[in-house]
Write a protein that binds this DNA or RNA. Structure first.
Ligand SMILES: [Mn+2]
Ligand SMILES: [Mn+2]
Ligand SMILES: [Zn+2]
Ligand SMILES: [Zn+2]
Lengths: 146, 146
DNA sequence: CTTGCGCCTTAGAACCATTCTAATTTGTTG
DNA sequence: CAACAAATTAGAATGGTTCTAAGGCGCAAG
């Protein structure tokens, strides 16, 4: 069984859990996100997806991305008001935005840190999620996962 | 000396530091932010500012807000892709976004926490800023600062 | 099978927060 | 005052995203 097949089956399962269908469009969009984890924008996903499925529309890419986010297979990531980026990394992690290059890096977070951060909330505040964003310069380039 | 006068002078000083002029528009925009610290959008600032300066334009409100941000008197705050909000709180703090009410609350951060958070960065990552956003429900309403 | 009924995809229009443009006003300096 | 720069203004433009309406596709019942 190939990795692509495995991913497609995991996707189909997650979609089914939400009462949704697996479609070629949803599969190829998810596959594109898994193949190159550089936090692409919808436009960038659209460009990559077209090579495998030339008839897909930008509206469908937006629809698929929203579906993947709702199924908890992908995270939407925002920096200021720039175009939303998409991240298939499901581990707890922060984002480092390199202001020079515009690249986004995943920073794994130990679970104990998230507890520590959440512990600063006064009583009466019930956080469902915590997001951490670093901004700066990445002086070392890092091998990208594949 | 009134507080408003004091604020105006502090503003004039900060602007002068950046080679910029103090103007009635900049003063009233900053004053509006200080008077009601509920993280208003540009539109909301515009509405509040018009009562004191009916001739002001929305473009000028945007210009003034950008100027205040550049002078480090105000922080721009973003949640997903919703309209940018503005915060005159200069202490290190996180934001708690109440998903029920849409209200934004400041959460003061002990300096030691920011160090702890930054310490998860691998070598090669040089963060100039750290942003922390909580999302959830604030079960207790909190008295607003004045 | 074949038909019915949703779900899904699609192209293009609409939306709307923000930025840009070009003209005017205001303030400062000589 | 004259000259020049900085700031404000109205309105147009921009651009990422969402909406709309039409058609396509897949599954289930007959
Ligand atoms: Mn950037
Ligand atoms: Mn909200
Ligand atoms: Zn990520
Ligand atoms: Zn704040």
């Amino acid at each position: 069984m190939s990795t692509a097949t495995h991913n497609a089956e995991a996707l189909a399962q997650k979609l089914a859990d939400s009462g949704l269908r697996s479609t070629p469009q949803r599969e190829v969009v998810y596959d594109v996100l898994l193949r190159k984890r550089d936090h692409p924008t919808a436009d960038e996903v659209f460009a990559r997806v077209k090579s495998g499925l030339p008839s897909i529309s930008l509206a469908t890419v937006y629809n698929c991305l929203e579906t993947l986010v709702q199924c908890d297979l992908v995270r939407a990531v925002n920096f200021e008001r720039s175009p939303t980026r998409y991240c298939p990394n499901l581990r707890p992690h922060a984002h480092f935005h390199d202001e020079q290059t515009g690249k986004t890096h995943d920073i794994d977070l130990p679970p104990e840190l998230l507890e520590k951060v959440s512990s600063v909330l006064p009583v009466g505040y019930d956080a469902k999620s915590v997001e951490i964003i670093f901004r700066g310069k990445a002086t070392k380039s890092v091998a990208s996962g594949g």
